[in-house]
């Protein structure tokens, strides 16, 4: 015959098991927070890629050329050339497919003692403001540009690019 002793213990056991399960669920659930510790890795990689691209563009192809591509681009304000070159460098991957890195570049300089920026170039996807972008920059010494004082002489300008992956 079925013994019906200890029913209270059984109920208590079931209640305890439920409480344990609930606690375990809460503990496990709380670890799925997406922390900054995870995002910075891809940010750093993106920063390195963008910075290297600008550095490559600011390096003369050989010693007989005295202006780098980036210098010429800033001096002439050649938006299309910057787009082609930067796009090719940052989106190059092993194999034939391409990465999805987008960018928006500005030239910042000092004019009449005031620091101002002029847009240089941007990729096909416009910067809308919601992207998680990193900033990369490169110093260039130019003879003249849209941005600097029209007076002759060399000027230091800063090419800044917002880079993001979409």
């Amino acid at each position: 015959m079925v013994n019906d002793d200890g029913q209270l213990y059984t109920i208590e056991g079931v209640a305890a098991a439920l409480i344990l399960l609930l606690t375990a669920y809460m503990v496990v659930n709380s670890t799925s927070v997406y922390t900054a510790g995870d995002t910075h890795i891809s940010d750093m990689q993106l920063e390195v890629v963008g910075d290297d691209a600008l550095k490559m563009m600011n390096t003369a192809p050989n010693s007989s050329v005295d202006k780098t591509s980036l210098q010429t681009i800033v001096e002439t304000g050649d938006s299309a050339q910057f787009r082609t070159m930067f796009d090719t460098i940052v989106n190059a991957k092993t194999g034939t497919d391409r990465d999805r890195i987008q960018f928006m570049a500005n030239v910042t300089c000092e004019r009449d003692g005031v620091v101002s920026s002029v847009p240089l170039s941007e990729s096909s996807h416009m910067f809308a403001g919601g992207e998680h972008a990193v900033r990369v920059s490169e110093w260039v010494i130019v003879d003249s540009s849209d941005c600097t004082d029209p007076s002759s002489g060399k000027h230091a300008v800063l090419v800044e690019a917002l880079v993001w992956r979409d």
């Binding site: 300089c109 000092e110 010494i141 060399k154």
Partner: peptide, 10 residues
């Protein structure tokens, strides 16, 4: 002189 001033300001 110009370039060095601009480096500081920028």
């Amino acid at each position: 002189t110009t370039v060095q001033r601009e480096i500081r300001n920028l």
